[in-house]
Computed example of a mutant assay.
Amino acid sequence: MAQATLSLSATGKEWSKMRSYFDAHLRSFMRKVLADCSASISELKRNPTALLAESDGAPIAILNHNKPAAYLVPAETYEWIMEMIDDQELSQIVEKRRQEKHKAVSVNLDDL
C-alpha cells in the first residue's frame, strides 16, 4: 500500500501572504467592542430611551450581526467628550505658542 505524504513547506514570502490574508479577513469578522453595554439594532428600534436609562451615561455599542455598527452615547456624555477634545486642541495651541515664545515682539501697551 502506497503512502501519500503531504508537504507543508512554504517560503517566508508565502507565509507572509497567507498571514496578511487571514489577518485582513479576521479583522472583518471580529471587531473590538469599545463599550461595556451593547444592544442590537432591533433593541434600539424598540426602546431607545430604555437603553439610555440602563446604560447610566455609558456608551452603548449598537451591533449589527454581532459587529459594532455604531455607538450610542447620551447627550451629556457626548458634550463632555466634545469639551475634552476642545480642551486638548487648546492645550496643543498653547504648547505650540510656548515653543514660539522666542519669536515674540515686545510691545509697550502705552505706545499703542
Rank of each mutant, 00 (worst) to 15 (best):
I41F: 08
D23I: 11
Y21H: 14
E14W: 06
S28Q: 14
E95A: 12
N108P: 02
E100D: 13
S28A: 11
F22G: 05
Q92Y: 04
L26P: 00
S42I: 15
Q3L: 10
V33W: 00
W15M: 15
M18H: 10
R27L: 10
L51F: 08
A39N: 01
T77Y: 01
M18N: 11
R46V: 14
R19T: 07
R27Y: 01
M82T: 07
E14K: 10
L44E: 01
S40C: 08
L44W: 00
V105T: 13
K45N: 12
L26A: 03
S20L: 12
D87L: 12
E79M: 12
L26E: 12
P68H: 06
Y21M: 11
L8G: 14
V73H: 03
D56T: 05
K96W: 07
A69W: 12
L90I: 03
A53H: 12
A10M: 09
L6H: 06
A2I: 05
F22I: 15
K103D: 06
M84L: 11
Q99S: 09
S106N: 08
I93L: 11
T49M: 12
Y78I: 03
E83Y: 08
A70L: 09
M84S: 10
H65Y: 07
Q3H: 09
N64G: 12
L8T: 09
L51D: 04
L112R: 00
E54Y: 02
S16M: 03
R46S: 15
R31P: 00
S7G: 02
E95V: 06
K103Y: 03
S40H: 02
A70V: 06
E54V: 03
A35K: 04
R98P: 01
S28K: 15
R46F: 11
Q99D: 10
M82R: 13
W15S: 09
P68A: 13
Q88T: 10
S28I: 08
L8A: 11
D23P: 00
D36C: 06
S16F: 01
Q92K: 10
Y78A: 13
L63P: 00
N108G: 03
E14C: 05
I41S: 09
A10L: 08
A39M: 03
I81R: 07
K96V: 08
E89R: 13
V107F: 02
K13N: 11
S91M: 07
K101F: 11
H65K: 10
E43Y: 05
A70K: 09
A58C: 07
E89D: 10
D87R: 15
E79C: 09
A61F: 04
S42L: 15
K103I: 05
R31Q: 15
F22W: 15
D56P: 02
I62F: 00
K103T: 10
W15F: 15
Y78M: 10
M1R: 05
T77K: 07
S7E: 05
S106R: 05
H102I: 07
R98F: 07
S7L: 06
N64E: 15
V105M: 05
I60R: 00
V107G: 02
H102F: 09
F22C: 15
A4S: 07
T5H: 11
Y71F: 02
S16P: 00
P74E: 13
Q88N: 08
S40E: 03
K103C: 04
A58H: 07
A69P: 02
R19Y: 09
G57K: 07
A39Q: 01
